[in-house]
Design a protein around this nucleic acid. Structure first.
Lengths: 233, 233
DNA sequence: GCAAAAGTGTTAAAGCTACACCCATGT
DNA sequence: ACATGGGTGTAGCTTTAACACTTTTGC
């Protein structure tokens, strides 16, 4: 019956690297597995591809399952296929990269999956080849955020320029000059002054901005020259 | 026996987008299929993943099979997994992107596979979702070549600056200023004057350069600010 | 009043663009 | 000698980096 009789058929997993920003550091959403294999160890959130499901749809299902969120930023970044990467049975893993606003999460769903936000420094060793996937995701973030206005996915709808700066400083692990940053970011025309102030500021209250959604698409390349040398440590 | 009894197992294909440069235009190496399905139509070179084979190794096998070349530049760029992308049976395709020096090819191997170099303008419609893959590959090339010294993979070992400029002009479909290009490229310190001249020049013979292999790794980010706005047409 | 963080201005250096000019080669 | 393409120089503009100063707020 099969038209490709000689070819092998193998398991297809989907793994998701989910990143958030807590105001200071980039965090990963990881799960402490309460199921076999590798029960008790840390891993990325993942699952197997379903019968009548596109890859993207599978990623969205898994992300919704864990976070209770829809419409989150998600992109396919790589595919891992080493022969022995899953010791149980050969499995290739299609890896997705998701950015979410850490405040929007559904804490109950997270608890149900034994999930936790951990900063990159706190990150324990992960199962299988999941550490490599995380490394790729960080690299990807550094590339992409240097070229495109992507960081906003990690912030609340309304945010201040100092918050945005802290985010970039976390992504690239470098200090940026406050004044030059502000000028550069405003010159893109991507931010709109909401007229509101960030009330939680301890001192002078910073202006809250939001994304200019109209210009967002046109200005997708506005950040092209944004960072000096992302990817170099 | 199976530890993941509920999960489905599906076919894994590998498809390769192979690009070359003939001195004027970027070309794709495509095959006119002399086998089913879609016999007689144009497609990318591809095949199924083997039992004890990593994905990268599969791509290298397929590339060697078609071109007779080893050690060519190849990177995984995306994975296609739409449910009906292969009408015969569900198949996900792991897509690789390869750059080769068009002069090094093995013409007999090419003929055996019914393969031909076609420029992007000449490109016929391809089977399945192969056109989408090509679109992604071109986008990828434009990103990557703007950020990293990648174009050299498409040129002979010794090349002239005007040749390199024509390559960039082909990639980004734009004219560049000869004098500014030359200054910029030389300032990276990546090129070494071989002392030789390109004898085929019709007029003044251009200097032949080659890559400074030592600096190549250090200067992987030398092109970071190289192109103004790749990806925009 | 003072500490801490936000917001604005300035200036020198660097980089980029748009040019003009000269050189080498084949016809 | 002249047409063609290669190689180098430069002036003016724009962008960037590195700064100092003022404003707002809580204690």
């Amino acid at each position: 019956m099969k038209r490709y009789p000689d070819a092998i058929r193998i398991l297809v997993a989907i793994d998701c690297i989910i990143m958030g920003f807590d105001g200071t550091a980039i965090k990963l959403l990881l799960i402490k597995r309460n199921f076999e294999p590798e029960k008790g160890n840390w891993s990325l959130m993942g699952g197997f591809l379903h019968q009548n499901e596109d890859l993207e749809a599978g990623a969205e299902r898994i992300l919704f399952d864990l976070t209770g969120l829809n419409n989150i930023f998600v992109e396919h970044i790589t595919t891992a296929g080493k022969i022995d990467r899953d010791p149980v049975e050969r499995t290739i893993s299609v890896v997705f990269f998701a950015l979410i606003n850490i405040n929007n999460q559904d804490q109950e769903a997270l608890n149900a999956h034994n999930a936790q936000w951990l900063s990159l420094e706190e990150k324990p060793e992960l199962i299988f080849d999941h550490d490599e996937m995380v490394t790729k995701a960080i690299e990807y973030l550094r590339y992409k955020a240097a070229l495109h206005p992507l960081g906003f996915e990690l912030l609340p709808e309304k945010f201040t320029i100092p918050q945005l700066q802290k985010l970039y400083e976390a992504i690239y692990d470098m200090k940026l000059d406050r004044r030059n940053f502000s000028r550069k970011i405003l010159s893109t025309g991507l931010l709109v002054d909401t007229g509101e102030k960030y009330e939680q500021s301890a001192t002078k209250k910073a202006t809250l901005y939001q994304l200019n959604q109209d210009r967002y698409k046109d200005k997708f390349f506005a950040f092209w020259h944004f960072m000096p040398h992302p990817g170099i440590d």
